[in-house]
Nucleic acid binder design. Structure first.
Length: 275
DNA sequence: AATTCCTCCAACCGCGGAGAC
DNA sequence: TGTCTCCGCGGTTGGAGGAAT
């Protein structure tokens, strides 16, 4: 069955938003709050689809949006987080207050990817297919346009290479301790119990996701977990038969919670999970 | 001055997950 | 259990505006 379009496309505005539309949307959301995007346009008196309204609000109209250039600190953080998380822009944006995923994505594609390429930081073999920014394809695109204009569709068919798609990160449905507890308070109690059950592993992984929430490099907030369900399931099955390894892992985890965290700590910890 | 090229970013598109029914 | 709807995400596009020729 084909997927129904997100909204009726007939009679709806597209393209740039007018100040009047912005005002209507802002006024409505200020009065009624976010959400219900599907029905929002109608109720707000907008001839836009809900997705468009949501995007406009999230990327432009939200009062907490930070305007202006990306600072060097933010720049550095984006680079480090991208090296760790890949193109998970919403996750990265979640750690940069006032910045949107769209903004970061654009910034990456236009500035950082190029910059890193110049520095040779991005592996050439992977960068061409995976990291090349959309803007870098503009030339190709424009040439394509030209070719089309000239009527020369001589471009050979591309061989598509399907890279493993990052799994969408979602908050786990399992019960969790809050981030403040996880960073310090909850450890003593857990230490008393022998962490061996799959549920305990799951909770551990959840909490690892919150490591650093209070340390200035906490990019795994309570709304964004690094560990997704598949990871958890994998780890559950992996550790289910080896409690000795799990004890070591738990100790390492506790150490991580108590030290000054950096991405390298987390990376080595993550690597240890996969060894 | 006119044209072409390039950069940047707002907005669109399609997909997949989650939850409701 | 299967289907549908809503929501959120990442990839991509279109066009404005500046730079280069």
């Amino acid at each position: 069955m084909g997927r129904a379009p997100c909204c009726s496309k007939v009679g709806l505005h597209k393209g740039p938003w007018t100040p009047k539309e912005d005002a209507l949307l802002t006024k409505y959301i200020q009065a009624h709050g976010e959400g219900q995007w599907k029905s929002l346009p109608k109720r707000a008196g907008l001839l836009r689809c809900g997705k468009s309204c949501r995007l406009r609000w999230m990327n432009y109209l939200r009062p907490d949006i930070k305007r202006g250039n990306i600072t060097t600190e933010e720049d550095d953080l984006i680079i480090r987080m991208h090296s760790l998380l890949g193109n998970r822009w919403s996750l990265i944006a979640g750690r940069l207050p006032g910045r949107t995923d769209n903004e970061i994505k654009n910034y990456w594609n236009t500035h950082l990817c190029k910059k890193l390429k110049n520095q040779g930081s991005i592996d050439k073999s992977s960068s061409d297919a995976e990291q090349e920014p959309a803007s870098a394809n503009k030339k190709k695109k424009k040439n394509k346009k030209k070719d089309k204009k000239k009527g020369t569709n001589a471009e050979p068919p591309k061989t598509q290479v399907y890279l493993p798609k990052p799994i969408r990160v979602k908050a786990l449905s399992l019960p969790r301790t809050d981030s403040t507890n996880s960073a310090s308070g909850s450890t003593s109690q857990e230490k008393q119990e022998s962490p061996g059950t799959t549920k305990e592993v799951t909770n551990m992984l959840c909490e690892v996701g919150n490591v650093g929430e209070n340390d200035g490099f906490g990019f795994f907030g309570e709304d964004h977990d690094l560990v997704n369900r598949l990871d958890v399931e994998y780890c559950q099955s992996y550790f289910a038969t080896d409690h000795g390894t799990l004890d070591n892992l738990y100790e390492e985890y506790l150490q991580l919670l108590n030290m000054d965290h950096s991405q390298y700590d987390l990376e080595s910890f993550a690597e240890s999970l996969l060894e």
